[in-house]
Amino acid sequence: MMQLAVPAKPLLNVDNLVVEYGLGNKIVHAVSGVSLQVARGETLALVGESGCGKSTLGRAVLQLRRAKSGRVMFDGEDLTAMEGEALRKMRRRVQLIFQDPIASLNPRRRIGDIVAEPLIIAGVRDAAERRRRVREVLSAVGLDPDLVAGRLPHEFSGGQCQRICIARSLVLNPEFIVCDEPVSALDVSIRAQILNLLEEMKARFGLTLLFIAHDLAVVKAVSDRVAVMYLGRLCEVGPSEQLFARPVHPYTNLLLQAIPVPDPDVRPVEGVAIGEPPSPIAPPSGCRFRTRCARADQRCSAEIPELREVVPGQFAACHHPLA
């Protein structure tokens, strides 16, 4: 499973994707030329701070938001060029799980109907078949169909609602799921339950995942590779064990150092984090991280660093990497 630096035949191939939003007469440069690949059966974690463009990228991959330029190839087909019926068909194979599990469930519908909804949209007419599928996925996510199917979302905790969302996303037997911060809104203890569940579902259904999170520690347990994003661009991509052990991009290093370690003997290093992310409306020239980087020099403001292989399998966009 390791060394999937550039998968030979990726299930997902995102090529130079650019996504922008209009804001009054200004432009938000949310995703500015991102390329990445995900192999079949792999989990790629996409990590970065709030507002760096993770959700935008995830949505653009699923064509819920159309890109300004660039391509998204899924299993050899160009999603960016697809429309209408073809795109609808394709959508059965790809799913999205949201950050806020409670808000993403319709409060007036029963759990059984919520989970069955994708089946109805996909045209599964046989009610008995739908019931069978719903029972199957509810059991798979650790809920008792007899106890939960007839109840409403407000009767469930955040962790249980996220299980229901996961069940709903699995009901069509998708191949690929974008998990957009599926545990960020959950308590530490419940978080572990959901992360384990996602791992289990992935193995059981042979899923491929794009796992979005703002917290590097969270992705450690579930990812094969990690892509670190900052202000619309990728900083570093590499196999997770390697990237955690030896980050080569200064921003990845900062993210790792900022994680509070539950050990009183590891004193937090004060002053590692400086400054705040600049606005994506007017991103800095050259390297977008340069306003917060201790290694920044002239070249960093003049020249955009390209993503390149710094150590075998590990890619970084930096003029002065840590390796």
Partner: peptide
């Protein structure tokens, strides 16, 4: 965010 959290705790 984690980096801002570190700053505030510092």
């Amino acid at each position: 965010d984690v980096t801002i959290q570190a700053q505030i705790l510092d």
